[in-house]
Nucleic acid binder design. Structure first.
Length: 255
DNA sequence: AAGATGTTCAACCGCCGCGGA
DNA sequence: TTCCGCGGCGGTTGAACATCT
């Protein structure tokens, strides 16, 4: 028996898939299934190898794929399963319906691994300046507690757990502080303006580079705080001041 | 304004186990 | 028993984009 090579790379396209290719692949699989990946691209009229088609389908086009941010529960599951299984991404993915091994692997490497490292060290990485990525915001679903518009803030500790609302924790002045569940409307970034502030939700805060020194709007009133934008490393001090100002020392206010 | 740097994630690569010939 | 293609898996890469300097 002589079989042709699985993936004859001559003339086959590589790189990102186009919308048209996606439609061709989806349409073909919906009609005929995917019993033979090697033969599929030929029959469907795609200039891709079967492996590439399979990957595209499994990781992106399958109808039951869940897109968007991982929930707390999903991330906790990943962490727990990784503890027992190691890098067996497909086994972990089997426990998370709608999530692919590739996606889980990516989340692990970009968020969870760093988070665990910092947790294990039990101290913030003072060299890490975590930025709030607009790219991330653009790609993500509207999970309620992601930082959405405080993009000018720079924090002196790793903020990834808060950013993903993993355990609602941040590190304030070397203390782990638990954040309450907050609504997206909490975060806003506008020039202070009486008209705007009067329409803000009562539990919201406004900070901006354009604010007068050491002021922000908190619960609809102007409060004096350290301006977080004077100095990168003072960012967390600012938030800590806000929390203290709310009347609690390390416990955060209910927003 | 522009180059440098960091982050994210889709896609590729190479290896492995299984099963058919 | 051996060979080899296929499907599946984990590791890695690189383009795109955001942010910093």
């Amino acid at each position: 028996m002589v079989r042709t090579p699985y993936c004859d790379k001559k003339g086959l396209k590589k790189g990102p898939w186009t919308l048209e290719e996606d439609e061709i692949l989806t349409s073909y699989i919906n009609k005929h299934g995917h019993s033979n990946w090697r033969a599929l691209p030929k029959h469907a009229g795609l200039l891709r190898c079967g492996k590439s088609c399979r990957l595209r389908w499994i990781n992106y086009l399958k109808p039951d794929i869940k897109r968007g941010n991982f929930t707390n529960e999903e991330e906790e599951t990943i962490i727990k399963m990784h503890e027992s299984l190691g890098n067996r991404w497909s086994a972990i993915a089997a426990k998370l319906p709608g999530r692919t091994d590739n996606e889980i692997k990516n989340v692990w490497h970009t968020h969870l691994k760093k988070r665990l490292l910092n947790t294990n060290n039990n101290q913030p990485n003072s060299n890490t300046k975590k930025r709030v990525s607009k790219q991330k915001i653009k790609r993500s679903d509207s999970n309620s507690s992601t930082l959405t518009t405080a993009s000018n803030c720079t924090f002196s500790s790793d903020f990834s757990s808060q950013e993903k609302n993993l355990d609602n924790s941040i590190i304030c002045e070397d203390s782990l502080v638990t954040m309450p569940e907050i609504d997206e409307s909490f975060w806003s970034e506008t020039v202070i303006d009486d008209e705007i502030s009067s329409t803000m939700p009562s539990n919201s805060m406004t900070v901006s580079n354009d604010l007068p020194d050491q002021q922000c709007i908190f619960n609809n009133s102007v409060e004096n705080f350290q301006n977080p934008f004077d100095n990168d490393d003072d960012g967390m001090d600012f938030w800590y001041d806000v929390f203290i100002k709310s009347g609690e020392s390390t416990e955060l206010p209910e927003f």
